[in-house]
Simulated assay, not measured.
Amino acid sequence: MKTKKAIYAIILAFALTTFISCKKEANTDSESQATITSLQKQITELTANSTLVNENLIKFDTLDYTVFSNQEWTRLHESHAKNIKVNWPDGHFTTGIEKHIEDLKAMFVYAPDTRIKQHPIRFGSGQYTAVAGIMEGTFTKPMPIGEGKFIQPTGKSFKLPMATIGIWKNGVMIEEFLYWDNKTYMDQIGLGK
Rank of each mutant, 00 (worst) to 15 (best):
T47Q: 13
A6D: 03
F150T: 15
T17W: 06
M173F: 12
Y128C: 00
K2A: 15
M1S: 13
I101P: 00
W73M: 11
G148F: 09
Y128I: 05
H92I: 01
I43T: 09
M162D: 02
E175D: 08
T184S: 11
R122Y: 00
V67G: 00
A34R: 06
D90H: 08
I84P: 01
A130P: 00
Y110L: 08
R75F: 08
T3W: 02
K159P: 04
L46T: 00
I58P: 02
T28K: 07
A15K: 00
S79F: 07
R122H: 11
R122Q: 13
T154H: 02
Q118L: 05
T94S: 15
F108L: 04
Y8Q: 10
T51F: 04
T44Q: 13
P161Y: 07
C22Y: 09
H92Q: 05
M135P: 03
T28W: 06
F19K: 03
G166S: 12
S38D: 10
K2Q: 11
H77R: 02
S30F: 04
H100W: 10
A9N: 12
L16M: 10
I116L: 01
K117V: 09
T3I: 14
M135C: 13
G190P: 01
S157P: 00
H119Y: 00
K193D: 07
A163P: 09
N54Q: 14
Y185N: 11
P142S: 05
L191G: 06
T184R: 10
